[in-house]
Amino acid sequence: MLLLIYFELLKTFSKWRTYIGFITVSVVIPVVMYALYYEGGEFINAQTRSIQKEFFMVGNLFNGWVIAQLIMNSLWVHIPFLITLVAGDQLAGEAASGTLRLSLIRPISRSKFLFAKYFTTLIYTALLVIVIALLSLGLGLYFFGSGDLIAFAENSITILHQDLLLNRFILAYALAILSMSVVASLAFLFSSFVENAIGPIIATMAVLVCLLVISNLPVDLFENYKPYLFTTYQNAWSLAFKDILDWNEISRAVTIMISYLVGFYSLTLIIFIKKDILT
């Protein structure tokens, strides 16, 4: 199985499209950092202006942790697209290039072949988030220094002591990997339906946009469904930046996301095993 995963990793990372995500974040993150450096933390002043009317505020709030959190906040809507580029291509890409049937001629079960591809997709997803984490935190802390984190959420502000932040960010990125893995699993599922990678990418993004709208609409009609939509937990990473960690909420988010992972993969497995592969 490890050898199978190794081959799938080789195949995935020999394609140019795999690097689009890494190149994009490697360009966007330094540009965002430069823009924030140039702007000099004015956005923090703007957010805290009303508080500064009544309080002296001291300490470095314009620091690497804040920048990393800001980047995470702005990228989590766009990262799914970069993930679907690879996840949506895993099965459909092979079908389109005519190598799928050839690969399955080998004496390995379809389920093992599928699992190797799925695991590779998850590795890519995790790697992309880890690269974002390393770039954001590495460059952020190098250029902006350390300090406490000011986390803005709806109408509240939470200040987290810098001693807590490494663990909180590890938790946040772990939750981000999980939520992005759900997106990857959906694209992987769609990839098993068709023989063209464009379809799964567009279908995944379409589903994502629709569900995100429902998850964020403050309408009573959808309230009962929201807890069961994976898009409701798309920004589950922000739970790591609450004053006191709500483990019940985190556990619920993790349970729902893992359920979707298992569900999407199981469905893909059923479809893939029964599929009449002609190309």
């Binding site: 009544e54 309080f55 002296f56 001291v58 300490g59 939470t158 200040i159 002591h161």
Partner: peptide, 30 residues
């Protein structure tokens, strides 16, 4: 607003010079 406990050093000099130092973030009422 959720803020952890703060340890701050303050300096005052007549007539109205005032300076706050803190290793971490601090907000002190004006």
């Amino acid at each position: 607003i959720k803020v952890p406990k703060m340890d701050v050093k303050i300096y005052f000099k007549q007539p109205d010079k005032f300076h706050i130092e803190s290793k971490n973030f601090a907000m002190i009422p004006r």
